[in-house]
Design a binder for these strands. Structure first.
Lengths: 273, 273
DNA sequence: GCAAAAGTGTTTCGTTTACACCCATGC
DNA sequence: GCATGGGTGTAAACGAAACACTTTTGC
């Protein structure tokens, strides 16, 4: 608040009453096949220099909060994600030491494949959600709210599929649900329940040459993505490749969006997990 | 946006970058024993003069959004409600013709007993939710989002009790749930389900003189409240006292908040409606 | 070849639903 | 006294949970 006067001197945009600044922040969830991760940016300047924070920044005057959040996310991490979910606006009076700032917060879901071109994001890094460094501003609180919201939403919306590749195996999906909800499911019951929602379809595997080539490629891509997901910090902290569980190939499924839309119309459709 | 320059001339609060104005709006739900209602204010000035809108207004620079929403709600309707739930922030670029305005929206739950001192609210009026007049700004959209959120929340939180008096009968509670969710429940099943949540307790009725006096009083209060809930506009439109169903006295229950808090801690408690 | 994960059906149990009668009250 | 809503239990159907063995793959 002290700084407002210096800002005023160079200020070109004047109002009869004081206006807060408005920022957007984006909690990006990712899934490495084992644990839920979030994407953080190391702050280069004050305040909270050197702390980690969510990608985000000031909203422009001619864009919606959604547009602003997407723009900032892209600028800071190179990610171009299709949907953001607004889950709260944070308005504590002193949450930013510089001036009155309110933050409209979103969460987003990133696929491994979204993460591949991770060059833009020099300062961006993934952290497992149980092992997050100290965060700037009130971002710890925002993170807690984001995870709570994610847990709630997964009961009603097919959120998981935004965190997995187009094609995924049932155990992958199960591990995802388990790590979001913090519970364990019986494999067979999970399979049944998932299938009888009617929104999944089994991918027919054409096991010809192109298919085997695809798997070859895919395996590499996968390790690349895991590499990208687990940046050096995370790997140093406690994650080793040798700890990665061996995985069978498994049957692939995909999310049938049209069928989901139709089911959603029909009734008070619930995913019931 | 055109007006910004005239505002700037008289503006005392200047910033290097343009800042949007921030308002709060409050969707107040009330229950008249039969239908869900919302509380609206008739706008006295432009824009949207004469239209109905939610109570709300500009957030002060030294208050949180919650505080601002409560303050505006009290100023405009005389209501002093204990909790507001933030359910969304609306940021479409042209949602206010005067300048860039974003709105942080809350919903609130009003009891009949909260409504009694309804004198402050000369311009405030209750409307049944299926019969709402044209609303100012994007308030139709905001209302839709508020009701969606209420429907979702009622699955997880004991929201109904904020809309009923301290003591209520099971059929009252059932009608409330039915009008929020838009479904019908079997009386016996509803009773069982509600009781086995463990958060209700039966009020021991002391049927002595004071008790019978209480019922006498209560009946009067109740008709008063219904009168307050259904303002003249609503009554004219389609509601008549003669249509009020006859009601037996019924067994009273109340919400045991401590027990609820304990249950909530224990597990992933769901109210399951 | 061995260890670890994937795939698959059936039985049991608990929950949800459907349903009908008598009682109390207001008119 | 009659019409309307309040109060209560049971049986059937359904969905959820528990459970073990065989097959495939990666190493």
């Amino acid at each position: 608040m002290r700084q407002i006067y210096t800002i005023m001197e160079q200020g070109k945009y004047c109002y009869k009453y004081p206006h807060p600044a408005v920022t957007t922040d984006c909690v990006v969830f990712g899934f490495d096949g084992k644990r839920l991760n979030i994407l953080l940016i190391e702050r280069g300047g004050e305040p909270f220099k050197g702390c980690w924070a969510f990608p985000g920044g000031f909203m422009n005057i001619n864009e919606t909060a959604e547009q602003g959040a997407m723009r900032e996310l892209c600028e800071e991490t190179g990610l171009n994600l299709e949907y953001l979910k607004q889950f709260g606006t944070f308005t504590a009076v002193n949450r930013d030491p510089r001036e009155r700032v309110i933050t409209i917060a979103f969460y987003a879901l990133a696929r491994k494949s979204d993460v591949q071109g991770g060059d833009d994001a020099a300062k961006a890094q993934w952290f497992p959600i149980e092992d997050v460094p100290p965060l700037a501003f009130d971002h710890d609180y925002i993170l807690r709210k984001a995870t709570e919201q994610l847990k709630k939403d997964i009961h009603f919306e097919p959120i998981g599929f935004g965190l997995l590749d187009e094609q995924f195996t049932m155990p992958e999906l199960q591990r995802l649900y388990e790590s979001i909800l913090g519970v364990h499911f019986d494999r067979r019951n999970f399979y049944k329940k998932m299938m009888q929602t009617g929104i999944l379809e089994e991918s027919e595997e054409e096991m010809d040459e192109s298919e085997s080539r695809y798997f070859g490629e895919r395996k590499e891509m996968c390790s690349m993505s895991i590499d990208a997901l687990f940046g050096s910090a995370a790997r140093e902290s406690q994650h080793h490749y040798s700890e990665e569980p061996r995985r069978r190939k498994g049957t692939k499924f995909s999310f049938n969006k049209e069928r989901y839309e139709r089911l959603k119309e029909d009734k008070n459709f619930r995913l019931e997990f």
